[in-house]
Design a protein around this nucleic acid. Structure first.
Lengths: 113, 113
DNA sequence: CTTTTTACCTTTAACCACGAGGTAATAGAT
DNA sequence: ATCTATTACCTCGTGGTTAAAGGTAAAAAG
């Protein structure tokens, strides 16, 4: 399937979305670009990832949506709820745990059999 | 499904297996315990993850297997091939890229709309 | 007036981790 | 001697999650 962001991506879209939307409200297309920006182009998430994630997070009560007319066009702005911030906090500690464990395992010299 | 290692685990089993098996040959059950050891109990991978991963990596030519009788019991020892080491190197850079990108995005203060 | 960019959204596919379960041999405990 | 825990191997099914690809339409740019 020609993956552009190979491995290590489970949970990452959710983490990034919650981080950004805890700072200020944004709409889908904007998030696509912001994620590239704040990761220094290292991570690119397409709309096919962003929109379904936003719906799922909204459904879970982690985000709230609000429709806003900008000019003649309507945009759907999302922002993190209290629940979303809590979820983010948990994700952050999960992330740190995995990250540190992998770092640890990289240094460990395995004792010979 | 009550996951013990929530999110951020895609690619991690493969990374850990290749790391360990680049150091010395090991068998499945041993790997299950070693992974707990070298990650300070932070990551626990069951046999349901380990064995299928080993087969897949062997099939891909990243590992080679060898059956060894230890006492009366037979064990299947795996070790990394040259191809496996190459694959590990790529995984390591992928991992660093994602890790650094997430770290970056955590510091970035998003400019207001 | 035509093309590119913005903006929204859905469908489909595939991957992969994981738990649960199953077998059998060996070692240790009673 | 017998029972239990541990070692060691393995398979199957599920479900979550990314991701590409496609589809619509408005607005800005050329």
């Amino acid at each position: 399937m020609a993956r552009t962001n190979p491995p290590f991506m489970t949970g990452v879209p959710e983490l990034l979305l919650l981080r950004l939307l805890s700072q200020r409200e944004m709409y889908g297309y904007e998030l696509v670009r912001q994620i590239q920006l704040v990761t220094g182009e290292a991570i690119k998430l397409g709309e096919g990832v962003i929109y379904p994630s936003l719906y799922a997070l909204e459904k879970a009560g982690a985000l709230k949506a609000r429709r806003r007319k900008v000019g003649a066009r309507e945009r759907v702005y999302y922002s993190a709820t209290a629940k979303g911030r809590k979820r983010l906090a948990k994700l952050e500690t999960d992330w740190e745990r995995i990250r540190d464990a992998i770092s640890l395992s990289g240094e460990a010299r395995v004792d010979p059999a």
